[in-house]
Nucleic acid binder design. Structure first.
Length: 982
DNA sequence: AAATATGCG
């Protein structure tokens, strides 16, 4: 297939070809003279000075790299017999003179998926109108049914006389929210929108919904009441629903109360007089088919202070909806802090505060901690440590410096004041002013814990907030080895989303008597409730993902917390008794805190939001986004639209395409969604669904706590990866291995040996079923069975699975360069992307530290900048998948060399006549895929059918290329590799 | 040469 045998492209063309498995490293006779190698580096011209020298070398490096890239471009060739076959195929494809495929907006509107969608929306809106005796198209909400009103009322009255209900009632009546019943209901009656604020534990979520429902039923309006209450998290939607069901002495999903979350739902059987608790995302799915939410009379949006993207977005939609639906009531619920801003957003709607009922918490700051522990900071050996940054992590160095200066002055004046007031002894102030007092110090935490153990004899539980894994790991080993806690024994519980402990009950249960529970947690503990905490130690740091607009990059930064975080953390101490909170920062530092962290919508890419706006037909994106509570910058929107066009979710006029429509219905990010659609078409669903589930939920590997364990996980990963050069296939193998082990009842052992979280693996398998269900509904699968043979024709063909990974992840492609050193050994792999230049592979990747890459292209899913810019997960892929599933192809002549480029970026060498064939195939493939996506259906594999012949040809080319790369294919020009799909 | 805040469809 290729001119050069043995599966190597480009190698040997230049002096330093990137290495390959069978590389003859000695093959570099031409290596020489200028640049690159360790030896004969060119010297800069002598007249340059200072900065110019650096610039000169940088430029020189770029030139060398460019040359290297050129020299190592893979050459793609086709044997004469292959060419003949393709020519014949193309001829027959052309002869099937097809009706010209319509394109553009007309095609989209006429596609199967869009027609079905319009029908759905219309039938929902119309059905509601017809029920109300109105003209179709008139907007209505719920319609009265007097029989229902009567029977709901009778039901409720009967219920109220039951002893269990009355017992629950006595408890409910004590909740602050219940005590404000009359005021709340009065406000509800008189206003369309209200804001309720109140701290956790005041019962606002559980009581307000019930108060509304009961009043509606009692006043004979039961048939006009369906409440939907949104929660940002699945766990709270389910637990709140369970709680309310219990309070009403009912069964979940059977009577008035139900829930619906992404993974499962228990929707009330009766369709009037209900309360449905659901995650915010679920409401968006409802909005697609029922844009006016005609099934609901009340929308309660809970936990708005979280300011997550979906809640912000939902508020925006509700702002319009209240005008279209005068009968719709909206209740916004938030923690106390910024109720004003919300109220203003809804035309100064009334707000109502429910006072909390928690115990007082004494607060101490760094100065107090230093006083109580007599801790002294060791002066740093390294003077310049990485500083925890303030509000805006992306400000320039200069700005950062001047901010530091400003803070230093503030701290000094704070210390001078304390000195005048004689509040703290001099030695404490001396420590407080040291720069080390501003750094996260685990030794200080240890001595603070010792201090608590000495002074508190009741073994009150301690909760420590740290920013991340690193500190959890280090602090717990440090505490474990420190045996002197004044004789009290301790139970350390690390709490992190990637630790298997998260599901364990011990976090929430009381420790055995005589032991003190110490929970070391990230901000995961800010929202979960651990009741018995008496002491909180707050390091004041939080990790946040931000979006760097200028560099079009996601970053993860450690920052100072906001006042809202600090208050929330403090509050964790006063759940059951008065508590103490130690802040490990000075009062001066606290003065620099913002009130809130930036809302998520300002810190995230907007692709999915924009796609939702298009899907929900909310009109122009730009004006729409401006009306959000905190409008994102214009540039962010532009980047999102550009990206959506690149992914073909929008056409060049920014209209939603059928692909975009499908993607907005799938519960995952766009690229993963694209991947599973392609898996449906190319019949390799099982492995791809494993990958999709893991990319959209989480990696099944956990990290065990304990020094050096990371290395063991890495090793397990690599063993499972088994030379696939793919983190994605590693996950496929992990799940396959689990299922094999399961059939022999050895799954526990398998998980233990491979550091797999059994619960995560099970969740992933569950999610795969759900995704298959989606593909089935979209008509890409005839059954919803993940391992159905019919839909896994190509699942064992790794070349194809990787090609589908590439099809989904494109344009997330990086290139690898490995230099051969003077002594013939291989250097480190250097990874680059077009947009970012140099990037690193994340250490957990199976490709990290690898320097033998048979192909130089890596597809990746996640890229993030922490201390380095790294690719978190990669799969090595060959040229053909990029040519068939990548971007725009173009051809040019470079002297007598034919050069093909994909999106003016990735380049391959190819003769012009080969390019003609490949381009024609690609054109047919694009048309076929466009058609398949607009009008879904199973792929016809019969070789006499047009699509069957085309698909077979493309699969054959990709498969042969992949096999050849691994050295498994025929090195000669023989065509023995024809029966791939047999 | 080296690392993993948290959610949701």
């Amino acid at each position: 297939m290729r001119g050069r045998g043995g599966g190597s492209y480009g190698r040997g063309r230049g002096s330093r070809g990137y290495a390959s498995s069978s590389a003859h490293h000695s093959q570099g006779p031409g290596r020489g003279g200028e640049g690159g190698g360790t030896g004969g580096r060119l010297r800069h011209p002598p007249h340059l000075k200072g900065r110019e020298i650096g610039l000169w070398y940088a430029k020189e490096q770029a030139r060398i790299r460019e040359k290297e890239d050129k020299e190592t471009r893979p050459k793609i060739e086709l044997s004469p017999s292959k060419r003949a076959k393709i020519t014949e195929l193309l001829g027959s494809l052309e002869r099937h003179s097809k009706a010209s495929i319509p394109t553009g907006a007309a095609a989209i509107n006429d596609s199967h998926v869009m027609r079905r969608y319009r029908q759905n929306v219309e039938s929902n809106v119309n059905a509601a109108a017809i029920r109300a005796g109105l003209r179709p198209g008139d907007i209505v909400g719920l319609v009265r049914n007097s029989e229902w009103d009567e029977s709901l009322k009778n039901d409720l009255e009967r219920k109220q006389s039951s002893p269990k209900y009355q017992t629950m009632m006595r408890f409910r009546e004590k909740l602050p929210a219940y005590q404000f019943k009359d005021e709340f209901l009065k406000l509800m009656r008189e206003n369309q929108v209200i804001v309720i604020s109140g701290e956790a534990g005041c019962g606002k979520t559980t009581q307000c919904c019930q108060l509304i429902l009961d009043e509606m039923i009692q006043s004979g309006n039961g048939s006009l009441c369906n409440i939907v209450c949104t929660q940002p998290r699945r766990i709270s939607a389910v637990t709140v629903a369970e709680r309310v069901t219990e309070e009403r002495d009912e069964q979940i999903g059977r009577n008035s109360v139900g829930y619906s979350i992404g993974l499962e739902s228990r929707i009330p059987e009766r369709d009037k007089g209900t309360i449905l608790f659901c995650t915010t995302g679920v409401v968006f799915k409802y909005l697609i088919d029922d844009p006016k939410l005609t099934k609901y009379s009340h929308v309660v949006v809970d936990e708005i202070h979280d300011r997550d993207v979906l809640s912000d977005f939902l508020l925006m939609i509700l702002k319009d909806l209240v005008n279209l639906r005068p009968d719709l009531k909206v209740i916004l619920m938030s923690a106390t802090l910024n109720a004003d801003k919300l109220s203003n957003y809804f035309r100064h709607c009334p707000r109502f505060n429910i006072p909390g009922s928690t115990f007082p918490v004494t607060e101490y700051f760094m100065e107090d901690v230093l006083l109580q522990t007599s801790f002294t900071f060791e002066t740093n050996k390294r003077p310049q440590q990485r500083r925890c940054r303030g509000k805006n992590p992306r400000k320039s160095e200069d700005q950062g410096k001047s901010e530091d200066q400003k803070f230093k002055r503030m701290l000094e004046s704070h210390v001078r004041k304390l000195e005048r007031d004689k509040t703290y002894p001099r030695h404490v102030l001396k420590e407080l002013i040291k720069p080390e007092a501003e750094e996260l110090n685990l030794d200080l935490i240890t001595s603070l814990i010792l201090h608590i153990c000495e002074t508190d004899r009741d073994n009150g539980a301690i909760l420590i907030f740290v920013p991340g894994w690193d500190q959890i790991s280090k602090l717990s080993t440090q505490l474990q080895s420190c045996c002197n806690f004044s004789g009290c024994s301790i139970l350390i519980i690390p709490l992190h989303s990637k630790l298997p402990t998260v599901n364990q009950k011990e976090v929430f249960s009381r420790p055995p008597s005589g032991r003190r529970k110490i929970v070391i947690a990230t901000n995961i503990a800010e929202t979960s409730t651990i009741d018995d905490i008496v002491f909180v130690i707050d390091t004041g740091r939080i990790k946040i993902t931000n979006f760097d607009l200028q560099r079009n990059l996601e970053t993860r930064d450690t920052e100072w917390v906001s006042m809202a975080n600090a208050t929330q953390r403090k509050g964790r101490a006063g759940r059951v008794q008065p508590g103490i909170c130690y802040h490990l920062y000075s009062k001066a530092r606290e003065n620099t805190f913002e009130s809130f962290k930036k809302p998520e919508i300002l810190r995230k890419r907007l692709e999915e939001v924009v796609l939702q706006i298009k899907t929900l037909n909310l009109g122009m994106t730009r004006p729409f986004l401006k009306r959000l509570l905190d409008p994102p910058p214009y540039k962010s929107l532009e980047l999102a639209i550009q990206r959506l066009i690149q992914l073909h979710a929008l056409d060049s006029d920014e209209n939603l395409t059928p692909l975009g429509f499908h993607l907005s219905h799938l519960p995952m990010d766009l690229q993963t969604g694209k991947m599973i659609l392609m898996a449906g078409i190319f019949e390799c669903v099982d492995p791809i669904l494993s990958i999709a589930a893991s990319l959209s939920f989480k990696d099944p590997f956990y990290i065990p706590l304990g020094l050096g364990q990371e290395k063991n996980v890495d090793r397990a990963r690599r063993e499972l990866g088994d030379g696939s050069k793919s983190d994605h296939l590693t996950i496929v193998r992990a799940i396959e291995g689990y299922q094999r082990a399961q059939s022999q009842n050895r799954e526990r052992d398998f998980c233990y040996r491979n550091f797999l979280s059994e619960s995560t693996v099970n969740l992933l398998m569950n999610m795969k079923k759900q995704l298959a269900e989606h593909l089935h509904q979209m008509e890409y699968m005839s059954t919803a069975t993940v391992d159905d043979v019919e839909h896994n024709v190509n699942s064992d063909n790794i070349g194809i699975v990787k090609a589908i990974i590439c099809a989904g992840l494109y344009p997330n492609i990086a290139t690898v360069n490995v230099r051969v050193r003077m002594d013939g050994s291989l250097g480190f792999a250097k990874i680059r992307t077009r947009e970012d230049g140099k990037v690193y592979l994340h250490p957990k990747s199976v490709n990290c530290n690898e320097n033998i890459f048979e192909s130089r292209y890596l597809a990746y899913f996640q890229k993030m900048k922490t201390s380095f810019l790294s690719l978190y997960d990669t799969t090595m892929i060959t040229p053909f998948p990029l040519i068939f599933f990548g971007g725009q192809l173009s051809f040019r002549k470079e002297k007598n060399l034919g050069v093909v480029s994909v999106d003016q970026n990735l380049e391959f060498l190819m003769d012009e006549d080969v390019f003609d064939l490949v381009q024609a195939l690609r054109k047919h493939l694009d048309e076929f895929l466009e058609e398949k996506i607009a009008n879904p259906g199973p792929t016809c594999w019969h070789e006499l059918s047009k699509e069957g012949a085309l698909m077979r040809a493309i699969i054959e080319l990709i498969t042969a290329e992949y096999k050849e790369m691994l050295g498994e294919g025929s090195a000669s020009d023989s065509d023995s590799d024809d029966d791939i799909i047999a």
